[in-house]
């Protein structure tokens, strides 16, 4: 099997792209803490309303400039609906689904997570810019999927 010199160079470039991709992704994930949302905690999807903290969804201050939003997703809404937080705060969303698979996406940010029944999913984001953010479900969840949205107001 003979490989041309030019092809060798080309394939080395290919390997380099793969290696560099891995390095950047690994660095961001493990050194900068930017790994994708991977909630490992379990919950009984049929008992969400009776299980802490989801028996009391809402926005909670957890520190200076730190908030936790405990949220349930169900067809076709987010609870709590309408979230307000002060600018500059770091918000952790702790979420689970009461029925089918939903998606949690905040347009214009990197917040994007699948919310699967049986799991507690978390994602953290700092909100610096003032304004109204559109929160929407990005996984098809049924006839009213296109209505499943809310807003986060940063003021």
């Amino acid at each position: 099997m003979k490989i041309h010199r030019a092809e060798e160079i080309w394939l080395i470039i290919g390997i380099a792209i793969i290696v560099i991709s891995m390095a950047i992704t690994g660095y961001q994930a493990f050194a900068l803490g930017m790994a994708p949302p991977s909630g490992m905690e379990h919950i009984d999807p049929q008992k969400v309303d009776d299980t802490a903290p989801f028996n009391n969804p809402g926005v909670f201050q957890t520190g200076e400039n730190e908030y936790e939003v405990v949220m349930t997703l169900q067809i076709f809404s987010f609870t709590p609906n309408k979230i307000e937080i002060p600018a500059g705060s770091e918000v952790t969303f702790t979420m689970t689904s009461k029925d089918v698979v939903h998606g949690f996406q905040v347009a214009g940010t990197n917040i994007n997570a699948m919310v699967v029944p049986g799991y507690v999913q978390t994602i953290t984001q700092k909100f610096d810019e003032l304004g109204e953010y559109l929160v929407l479900c990005n996984e098809y969840c049924g006839a009213g999927h296109q209505l499943m949205a809310t807003t986060i107001i940063v003021k």
Partner: peptide, 21 residues
């Protein structure tokens, strides 16, 4: 971005996916 699969496994899978390139 699914739950229930840990970050280490997700990282290994970046390689698994990229290798097809």
């Amino acid at each position: 971005i699914d739950p229930g699969i840990n970050e280490g496994i997700k990282f290994m899978h970046v390689f698994m996916s990229l290798s097809i390139g």
